[in-house]
Every structure is written in structure tokens, then in C-alpha cells.
Design a protein around this nucleic acid. Sequence first.
DNA 1: CATAATAGGGAACAATCGTTTCCGAATAAA
DNA 2: TTTATTCGGAAACGATTGTTCCCTATTATG
Lengths: 184, 184
Amino acid sequence: METALDRALRVFRERGYHATSIGDLTAAMRLATGSVYKAFADKHAVFMAAFERYTALRQEQTRNAAARGENGRERLRQVLLSYVEHSQGIEGRRGCLVVGSAVELSAVDPVVAARVSAQLKTNESFIAGLIREGQADGSIPGHVEVDATARLMICITQGLRVVGKARLPLDGDRLVAIAMKLLA
Amino acid sequence: METALDRALRVFRERGYHATSIGDLTAAMRLATGSVYKAFADKHAVFMAAFERYTALRQEQTRNAAARGENGRERLRQVLLSYVEHSQGIEGRRGCLVVGSAVELSAVDPVVAARVSAQLKTNESFIAGLIREGQADGSIPGHVEVDATARLMICITQGLRVVGKARLPLDGDRLVAIAMKLLA
DNA sequence: CATAATAGGGAACAATCGTTTCCGAATAAA
DNA sequence: TTTATTCGGAAACGATTGTTCCCTATTATG
């Protein structure tokens, strides 16, 4: 059973912050405006709650994907495959709230800008951790520059979401196979 | 001397479509609303004109960057360096109108969605062309999968713009050196 | 049973939006 | 010189926005 916030999250993912009206939110959440304002201070607060909900969900999904690998390299490969999977089809077209927020709000909303920046760093730390794990277990060579490679992989993941939102097809197996060259 | 459309473009890049009001546009363009509506049918038409202006500028910049290389591989390296350069500092924070439009408008504006998709494919074809050129002149190995690598590189370029907009620092030399592993 | 609290709803409100209309000044043409 | 056209401007307009206020129904409490 989906909560009202989950439904709000879906609208924000698809349309972004500014193109989503209170009317859109109340329709999606199946609540009246008075009820929304009893639960949340304002529209921005609904958005921030949706953002936190989204990042919690996605981090869990990413951890689950990593858990499918048996060494650092394989965990990272599963994470990348998971990103491609979430970047295409209906899920891909809905979009990523982190990417959407970075692009739409970074310049005009310091609160969101700070939150987005922190989230990208968290995701990057996770990937850097997998690279280090791979170097420790021998599945990734020691000469791979951890931080810069993690930064580049974050660029790939965010770019996947943009390209997926623009509806260009993404062949996960091929793209990830090539991306793994970065760990050579 | 900057034209009114160039100034409108700057506002759209930074704030996007929905967060830019007609008042923002008239202030930036230094024209009154009546003048804007004499020159353009509506707000959407201003946006489309700005989008065309932007893609023309960026394509020229990318061609100029490629021209700095002497073989396919080196041209591609210069293109990637150029993307990183445009993804950081003030220029990076302003944002990319293609990425912005993909994320903000793909779901709600079929005209923009089609235009964004076409532009990404154009950029990708350009990169694929450089890879093929590199394979022809021997600077890139023949086993590199052209289409999938070009698609992945498009993801990198769009991701760079997102990460740059979110103000994470990007070290062009290091990132591009690692990205070139994709051509090994 | 009466009162208070809670929950959900929707209209009212002031502000802002995008677009249209109309004005005045300057320039061109007859 | 008069009239028409062009140009730039800004207010008016209807619609939509986000938020506040107040209503009704239900449930809890004394």
C-alpha cells in the first residue's frame, strides 16, 4: 500500500518541483489542500520529505544490487547494471529526483543544492568503497585511481538518468561491460 | 555585444523553463513584455529559440575542441576536456540547456522532448565519428565497440554537466585520463 | 450526554503568472 | 505638412498559483 508521500514523490520525479502544482500534489496524494498543509509546512517541505524518501529507497536498492556481487569488482558491476535498469523503461522516464533537483534547483534553492551535493558525495563514497574493496580482494588492480574513478562513475550514473529520461535506449550489458574498462 | 536572445538563454540555462517568468526574461533581455511578444509568439517560442542558439554555440565549441587534436583519439580527448571545462566554475554552474531540458521538460513537453532526443543523438554521432576516425588512423584499437562506447560517453558528458551544476569539483586532466581507458 | 479534540475537506485570499491590448514617440512615406 | 507605419513600453486581463481560514463529521474524553 503506497503512502501519500510515495505518490507525491512520483509526481515530483516526473515533473520536477516548479512544474508540480499543489493541485497536482493533492490529486496524486488523494488529500485536500488543507490536509496537505496540516501534514507539511508548505510545498517545499513536501518536496524535501519526498527527496529524503527517494534517497532512502534508492540507497537501499543500490545496497541490494551490490550485495549480489561476491567481490568488489562484481559488486560495482551489479551497481552499474542496477543504475542502467533504473534509467530505462517507465522507471527511467519517471526520472531521478537527485538529478532533477541538481539541474532544476541547484541555482535557485540553497537548501536543495546542499542536499543534492551531499547525496552525490554519499553515492560516490559508496562507489569508492567498492573500488577499495575490489583492490583489497584482488578483483580490481591497485593502480586504479579510486577517487577520480569514483567521481567519473558518478558522472556516468547521473548521465544514465539524463539519457534515460530523454528516452534513448540503454543496453545495460553492453554499456556496463565497456564501463568496466575503467577498472582495468 | 550580446543579443537579447543570448541574455534570455543565460536565464533559461540557470533557472530552467518553469522557474523563469516573463518578468525574468524581460529584465534579462532589456525589453518590455510587449516587445518580447512582438518578436516571439509566446514564452515557449523564446525558449525554443534560446535552445537552438545554445546548441549551435555548443556544437561550434565542440568542433573547435576536436580540431585541436591530430588524430581521432586525441580529438576525442580534447572534446572530453572541453566538456569538463564547461561543466565547472561559473559556466558549469549555469548549466546545460540540453540536460536541463531533458530533465525538466521531457515528461511534459513533446516538442522539447523530441528536440532534446535529436540533439543527444547528434552529439553521440559526432563522438562515434571521432572513434571511427581513430580506428581508421590507428589511434584507437579496432575492437572498441563504437556505438556502445559513444553512448556511454554521451552519458559521461551529460553526467559531467549534472555534477558540475551540483558544484562538485571536476579535475579535467584526471577524469579524462581515466575516461580514455574506454578506448583501450 | 455533552464537550473537546482530531481529521479531512474545500473555498477564499492575495500574489504571480503568461498573454493581450492599447498608448506614445519616432520614423517613413505620400 | 499630414498620415501611416514601426517600435518600444507598460497596464489590464483572466487564469493559476501557494497558503490560510473555516466548515463538517467523526472520535475521544469527561
